[in-house]
Structures are given as structure tokens and as C-alpha cells.
């Protein structure tokens, strides 16, 4: 009978593991008895099972198991962080200010250090503040005086400049006026001289004519 190896293919492992029903087990055994190929597969499977059991695990070489990092830790409840932060800050402030909490007949009493300490601190702080203010005021006065002095100097310089300029303008005006007057006078004088010279020439001509006429008259005589 030709074997298609299907029975052994399907049930070989279960057969080796003893998980088959008696009927199925018998079928597998019959198949193996009739087919040398199936029988060989079975023997190889058994041998392989034993072989696998003999494998000696290779130790894993050392390697960086977190090289690709672990995801950042998720934020724990934020209110817890804030509460702890606030509590720490409160504790620090209480130490710094020497907070003293006490209970008496009058009830709960909260004091910031001893009274003497507080007075001394206040006194010292006031003195420091006063000194600081004095220094600031002095500096401000000095600065204001400097500023005023500078402004005054600038104003004076400006005024002097302007006065000098005006004086120069006035002088220029006067000189120009005088020169103009001189030119005008000169021109007038020149004109009068010219006129006088012309009159003189005319007079001379007239006189010459008179002399000539007189001479003619004497000659006629």
C-alpha cells in the first residue's frame, strides 16, 4: 500500500509525547510499520528530542541591556511634588525666622525669634536703610548740582556766542554803512569836482572869448 505519510505527519509529535488515543496510536504505529520513510522520520524525531536535550546553553556575552534607554519615568502625581516642595520651603523659612510656636493659657502663640533679637534686627535694618537713603540722596544732590552747573555753563557759552555774533553783525553793519556813505560822498565829490572843472573850463573859454573880443576891439581902434 502506498503511504502518503499524512498520518505520521499529522500525529508524530503527539505520538512521541504520548498524547494520542489508543485508536490513533495504532494507526500511527501501523503506518510506521508499513512505511520505512515514516519509520525513519519517527526515529529521527526521537533522536532529535534527545539531541536537543544535550544542548549546552551558551552563556550570553555581556552587553548593554539598556543601550536604547528605558522610557522616562511617568510623572508621579504632581500635587505630591508641590506639597513636598511647599513643606520644605515652609520648614526652611521657619528655621530662618526662628519661628517659635507655643501654647499657653491664652491659646496658641506664634513668635518670630526673641523680642530683643527682633528689635536689634529692626534697629540694624533701619540704620542700614537710613545710611543707604543718605548715600542715595547725597549722590542725587551731587548729580543734580553737576547737571545744573553743566547747564549753566552751556547757557553762558551759548549766550556769549550769540552776543559776540550780534556785536559782529552790528559792527559789520556800521562799517558797511560808513563805507557806503564814503563811497557816496566820494562819488558826490567827484561829481562836484567834475562840474566845477567843467565850469572852470567854460569860464576860461568865456574869458578867452572876452579877451579875444577885447583884443579885436583894440585892433579895430
Amino acid at each position: 500500500m502506498l503511504c502518503d505519510h499524512q498520518v505520521v505527519t499529522d500525529h508524530l509529535i503527539d505520538y512521541i509525547d504520548g498524547k494520542l488515543s489508543p485508536v490513533m496510536r495504532k494507526q500511527v504505529e501501523d503506518a510506521m510499520a508499513e512505511c520505512p520513510s515514516c519509520k525513519e522520520a519517527y526515529l529521527n524525531a526521537v533522536a532529535l528530542t534527545q539531541t536537543a536535550a544535550r544542548w549546552q546553553d551558551q552563556p550570553v556575552p555581556e552587553w548593554h541591556r539598556t543601550e536604547y534607554a528605558v522610557r522616562p519615568r511617568q510623572q508621579t502625581s504632581s500635587w505630591l511634588n508641590w506639597t513636598s516642595l511647599a513643606a520644605s520651603a515652609m520648614a526652611i523659612l521657619m528655621v530662618v525666622f526662628q519661628v517659635n510656636i507655643s501654647t499657653s493659657e491664652n491659646g496658641l502663640q506664634i513668635a518670630f525669634g526673641s523680642q530683643a533679637n527682633v528689635d536689634a534686627i529692626v534697629e540694624r535694618k533701619l540704620a542700614e536703610y537710613k545710611q543707604q537713603q543718605d548715600t542715595l540722596l547725597d549722590a542725587r544732590f551731587v548729580a543734580a548740582a553737576d547737571k545744573q552747573d553743566t547747564a549753566r555753563k552751556l547757557m553762558m557759552a551759548d549766550m556769549l556766542d550769540k552776543t559776540r555774533e550780534e556785536r559782529r553783525d552790528d559792527l559789520n553793519f556800521i562799517v558797511t554803512g560808513i563805507q557806503t556813505q564814503r563811497f557816496e560822498d566820494q562819488a558826490k565829490l567827484d561829481k562836484e569836482l567834475l562840474s566845477l572843472a567843467q565850469n572852470q573850463i567854460e569860464n576860461n573859454q568865456y574869458i578867452s572869448q572876452l579877451i579875444q573880443s577885447a583884443n579885436y576891439s583894440e585892433g579895430d581902434k
Partner: peptide, 23 residues
């Protein structure tokens, strides 16, 4: 699963001769 079983059978067939040495 059926393909796996077929492959396993074929693999066992291919081990013919080699497993004898192993044994």
C-alpha cells in the same frame, strides 16, 4: 499548522543519516 507539520516531516526526512552519527 498543516504546513508546519509537513515542513517538520520533511526536515526529519532530511536528517536521514546525520542523526545516526549523532546517536
Amino acid at each position: 499548522v498543516s504546513t508546519l507539520k509537513t515542513r517538520l516531516y520533511a526536515a526529519l526526512q532530511k536528517l536521514k543519516g546525520h542523526m545516526e552519527v549523532q546517536n
